[in-house]
Amino acid sequence: AQASVVANQLIPINTYLTLVMMRSEVVTPVGIPAEDIPRLVSMQVNRAVPLGTTLMPDMVKGYA
């Protein structure tokens, strides 16, 4: 199964992502692939992302 990117903490709206904020986990539904974690660093979330939430492409500015 493919691992997705999951929030490792509460990520406030407009926060620039860093490695410590994200982890990879096999979840349903599938979100942003874990292999894209390096690409996500320094990208901004466009909403608050609670701890344990799967990151979806529409949550990250400029990802989709």
Results as ranks from 00 to 15, higher is better:
4 S>C: 04
34 A>T: 06
10 L>Q: 14
39 R>H: 09
3 A>V: 06
44 Q>Y: 06
15 T>G: 11
12 P>K: 06
24 S>A: 12
45 V>F: 01
20 V>T: 13
3 A>I: 13
3 A>W: 05
22 M>D: 01
63 Y>A: 04
54 T>P: 10
16 Y>P: 14
13 I>N: 08
57 P>K: 06
55 L>M: 11
36 D>Y: 07
52 G>W: 08
4 S>K: 02
2 Q>P: 15
6 V>P: 01
64 A>R: 13
5 V>H: 01
29 P>D: 08
36 D>A: 10
21 M>E: 03
20 V>H: 15
49 V>K: 00
11 I>C: 02
51 L>N: 09
46 N>W: 05
12 P>T: 13
24 S>C: 03
62 G>V: 04
14 N>Q: 08
29 P>M: 09
14 N>H: 14
64 A>E: 12
11 I>G: 01
49 V>I: 15
50 P>I: 08
50 P>L: 08
14 N>V: 02
37 I>Y: 02
17 L>Q: 00
3 A>F: 06
31 G>R: 03
24 S>D: 14
40 L>K: 00
30 V>R: 03
16 Y>A: 15
31 G>S: 03
39 R>L: 12
57 P>Q: 10
64 A>G: 12
43 M>P: 00
11 I>D: 01
1 A>I: 14
17 L>F: 03
44 Q>M: 13
6 V>F: 02
50 P>R: 08
51 L>S: 12
13 I>G: 11
49 V>H: 02
47 R>D: 13
32 I>Y: 02
43 M>R: 05
53 T>L: 06
51 L>R: 06
9 Q>N: 11
32 I>Q: 00
34 A>F: 09
52 G>T: 03
47 R>C: 04
42 S>A: 12
32 I>A: 03
26 V>W: 04
53 T>C: 04
55 L>Y: 01
33 P>C: 04
22 M>Y: 02
60 V>G: 01
17 L>K: 00
48 A>P: 07
15 T>D: 11
38 P>D: 12
39 R>Q: 12
26 V>L: 14
9 Q>T: 14
45 V>W: 00
53 T>Y: 14
47 R>S: 12
2 Q>T: 09
45 V>N: 07
60 V>R: 00
49 V>Q: 02
33 P>S: 10
59 M>R: 03
55 L>K: 00
25 E>D: 14
62 G>F: 08
41 V>D: 08
39 R>I: 14
24 S>L: 05
39 R>W: 06
25 E>Y: 04
44 Q>I: 14
10 L>M: 14
1 A>T: 15
42 S>G: 10
47 R>F: 07
10 L>Y: 15
33 P>I: 06
45 V>C: 03
16 Y>G: 14
62 G>L: 12
56 M>P: 01
60 V>D: 01
33 P>Y: 06
43 M>G: 07
18 T>A: 10
25 E>T: 05
16 Y>C: 04
8 N>Y: 05
5 V>N: 01
7 A>D: 01
48 A>N: 10
37 I>S: 08
24 S>F: 12
22 M>F: 08
42 S>M: 12
38 P>H: 15
64 A>S: 11
46 N>A: 10
47 R>N: 11
20 V>F: 15
55 L>F: 13
50 P>G: 07
8 N>F: 05
39 R>F: 14
38 P>E: 11
61 K>M: 09
50 P>W: 05
55 L>N: 00
38 P>A: 06
33 P>F: 15
59 M>N: 06
48 A>T: 15
39 R>K: 11
40 L>N: 00
19 L>H: 14
14 N>E: 13
9 Q>F: 10
8 N>A: 13
56 M>S: 12
5 V>K: 01
59 M>Y: 14
19 L>Y: 12
35 E>H: 13
28 T>L: 10
45 V>D: 01
57 P>V: 06
34 A>I: 06
56 M>G: 06
49 V>R: 03
58 D>F: 09
21 M>G: 03
63 Y>K: 04
22 M>P: 00
8 N>P: 02
46 N>L: 10
57 P>H: 09
54 T>E: 02
34 A>E: 12
22 M>N: 00
53 T>I: 12
40 L>C: 03
52 G>V: 02
45 V>P: 04
32 I>V: 11
30 V>N: 09
13 I>S: 11
32 I>K: 00
20 V>E: 12
36 D>M: 09
24 S>H: 08
64 A>I: 13
34 A>L: 06
9 Q>A: 15
1 A>D: 15
55 L>V: 12
36 D>K: 06
35 E>C: 03
58 D>H: 10
40 L>R: 00
17 L>G: 00
17 L>T: 00
61 K>N: 12
25 E>A: 08
9 Q>D: 11
56 M>V: 13
7 A>M: 08
20 V>R: 05
9 Q>H: 10
46 N>I: 14
26 V>N: 11
61 K>I: 14
57 P>G: 07
17 L>M: 13
20 V>A: 10
48 A>W: 05
47 R>G: 09
18 T>K: 03
58 D>Y: 07
28 T>P: 02
59 M>H: 13
22 M>V: 10
5 V>M: 02
22 M>T: 03
63 Y>Q: 08
42 S>Y: 08
10 L>D: 15
6 V>R: 05
25 E>M: 05
21 M>W: 03
40 L>I: 11
12 P>C: 03
53 T>D: 11
58 D>A: 14
37 I>H: 03
5 V>L: 04
26 V>I: 07
54 T>R: 05
34 A>H: 11
20 V>W: 05
55 L>Q: 00
21 M>C: 03
27 V>S: 05
52 G>D: 15
56 M>K: 09
43 M>E: 08
42 S>E: 06
2 Q>D: 13
14 N>A: 08
44 Q>K: 06
5 V>T: 12
24 S>Y: 06
43 M>S: 06
62 G>Q: 14
48 A>L: 11
1 A>S: 10
23 R>K: 09
58 D>L: 07
15 T>A: 14
5 V>R: 01
7 A>R: 01
7 A>F: 01
48 A>H: 06
14 N>G: 12
35 E>W: 07
7 A>P: 02
11 I>H: 01
63 Y>C: 03
29 P>R: 03
16 Y>N: 10
64 A>P: 13
46 N>C: 03
21 M>T: 03
32 I>F: 03
14 N>I: 02
34 A>C: 04
3 A>C: 05
57 P>W: 06
29 P>C: 14
4 S>T: 06
15 T>M: 13
39 R>D: 03
13 I>Y: 10
1 A>Y: 09
8 N>T: 11
61 K>T: 14
29 P>W: 03
35 E>F: 05
22 M>I: 13
40 L>H: 00
59 M>T: 07
41 V>N: 06
43 M>K: 07
35 E>V: 08
18 T>E: 15
33 P>K: 09
26 V>D: 15
42 S>V: 08
40 L>Y: 02
49 V>F: 02
4 S>V: 02
48 A>V: 12
